[in-house]
Design a protein around this nucleic acid. Structure first.
Lengths: 340, 340
DNA sequence: TAGGGGCTGGACAACGTTGTCAACAAAGGG
DNA sequence: CCCTTTGTTGACAACGTTGTCCAGCCCCTA
């Protein structure tokens, strides 16, 4: 029965037969090409309506060479951080009459490659990738074959390609400097796993800010690892105890910040200053309101998509690297002075 | 130059020529079909590697009839509520070796139709749709032609199709009953525009709960309209003033809830009870913590996708309608007693 | 009335792949 | 030694569309 259903789909040939015209004439009507009399158009249109015909764009695009589609690979479709990024890419795609394939790499290099190559096999015109792997040489033949590729949020590994980043180090520097300006000297830093580019850059920013202020950094103040609530909680509690507890914390991304807020909420007697990387909704409504270093994920996506479509429109030239600034939003949690 | 790039893409024909074998033999090797000697396989593989050949799945699927792709149309890719829904659909798609097209209708009927039909023109095997329009008869020919279609979050209009909903009325009833149980008699209700199905159902739940408790409902206590902060703020302030101000509010979705929280935070002298539809991150960290009626967007997506793939696997039978329960999560804001 | 030009329409190949079928060689049985 | 079987391979059509090209037809002019 599935077969019947598939066979049931009318093609231009069916329309042509029913309208009593040639195949190409149907094509002309469907594509609104000139050179068909009104009378013929009407006959063809009637046949189209009667059969419920819809042009098969896959076949059309196979013939035409372009597929009018792009692929978006990100870390996790369910992560709110990427939602505005996706939407921005989608908006530009729509403006270019292009459809959007999406997929999550789940922070897994193999899955990223599998997804990306699946998109390439469908002959997407271009790719926007939030890398999960650090080796993208597998994309070389695709890029050589003309697939425009832009990396976002993290740079490509092993190949030279367009990339749009946030100024992770600079943003972190500002955030840590903010804590230092409010009198903190023992500042903890919890970030994502060190092989993730953004995490490494933020760690660099932290070290630079501490060094710029002439402050020492103890190993125990730094934690890089999974962002699971359990791990973050354990690391933070470790930093808050012992002989030299931290008086302030810089949280390396929004999930870490949220866990930190939960942990700190349970020990109101010992206020700890907090600055988090990434803004999040309601940060201003918490008490204290959370000071953050904000990226603009929508702008990341928009910039990447603009770059992509510029390439698709024929722009040549060497790969460009765009770095978007971050913005410190002081709300209170970063202004808490050290207790001691 | 674009032309060169396009021409540059090697095809099976090129591989065959280079390996000195027939076209079909290349196809056999690529698809790992039996009946090719190891020696030939090696020669073909060498040619594939040398040319950087990758099979064109568009052409393949044109030939095969199925496209191994589905389309997901939702209201807004950037809305965090839909993020877990998308991810759930994606996960099932991956499990079925299917690629995912996504797009936002932006709550606009015309855009929904345009997107959906664009997906159909690409011959997606199936569709998951969060409807923005209330008339889906335009999909009849597509469904008849075999495009499996499942509606989520809101029902289809004018056609009979599979649909997965939350129990909006029941959830709202529970939420309003919760407020009544804590002594409230004048309860405000702010929801999305009335033509949106979920908003209408939630309004029904509100009325039912009030009626069940024998409480009157004043027109001034009900507001249906755009969910912009400005409008919600104005409506709420109106309800809170006047001769018979409300002592509690039911907020019809998470965006309304957030605005309400902001407004209420500015008038701490006059505490107002609040229950919101839809859970959101950090609701438990606000003071008071926000009591909500929670849907499970991931489960909505998962259920819809399961239904879809069951249809694609050949399941016949009449359209099914699944209604998922909502869950009241009491956190404090709903337990505030009326001041008067 | 013959010839030319504009308009309308259709036949055919091509896009890159897969399914069908037949050709051919080597091997095995009588 | 011939016939059959088995295994390997390639020619060809087909999927549904578009681009190229050519054939009619009508009307006009010389």
């Amino acid at each position: 029965m599935t077969d019947i259903a598939r066979t049931a789909r009318p093609t231009m040939k069916d329309v042509a037969a029913r309208a009593g015209v040639g195949l190409k004439t149907v094509s002309r009507v469907v594509n609104e090409e000139p050179g068909v009399t009104d009378d013929t158009i009407a006959r063809v249109q009637a046949a189209i309506d009667a059969l419920g015909f819809r042009r098969n764009d896959s076949a059309r695009l196979l013939r035409k060479g372009r597929t009018a589609s792009i692929g978006l690979v990100l870390e996790d479709l369910a992560d709110p951080f990427y939602a505005p990024l996706s939407r921005a890419v989608e908006d530009l795609a729509r403006a270019h009459s292009t459809l959007l394939f999406t997929g999550s790499s789940a922070e897994n290099a193999e899955r990223e490659q599998e997804l990306t190559l699946a998109f390439c096999a469908r002959r997407v015109d271009g790719l926007v990738i939030v890398p999960a792997s650090d080796d993208h040489r597998y994309l070389e033949p695709e890029i050589a074959a003309g697939v425009a590729t832009v990396f976002v949020d993290r740079p490509a590994g092993g190949i030279d390609a367009d990339v749009v980043l946030s100024d992770n180090a600079g943003g972190t520097r500002d955030g840590v400097a903010h804590l230092i300006a409010h009198g903190h000297r023992r500042i903890g830093f919890i970030a994502d796993q060190p092989h993730i580019h953004t995490a490494a850059q933020r760690l660099r920013g932290y070290r630079e800010a501490m060094a710029a202020a002439g402050l020492p950094v103890h190993d125990g103040w730094i934690s890089s690892g999974p962002t699971t609530p359990e791990h973050v909680r354990a690391e933070l509690e470790r930093m808050l105890s012992g002989p030299e507890p931290v008086t302030a914390l810089f949280a390396g991304n929004n999930r870490i910040t949220v866990t930190a807020v939960r942990v700190l909420a349970n020990r109101p007697a010992h206020p700890v200053a907090l600055v988090g990387f990434d803004d999040f909704e309601l940060a201003d409504l918490l008490r204290p309101a959370i000071t953050v270093v904000a990226q603009d994920p929508g702008e990341l996506g928009r910039t990447a998509a603009r770059l992509l479509f510029r390439r698709l429109d024929g722009s040549a030239g060497p790969p460009s690297r765009v770095e978007l600034p971050c913005r410190l939003i002081a709300r209170g949690s970063g202004e808490i002075a050290p207790a001691a």
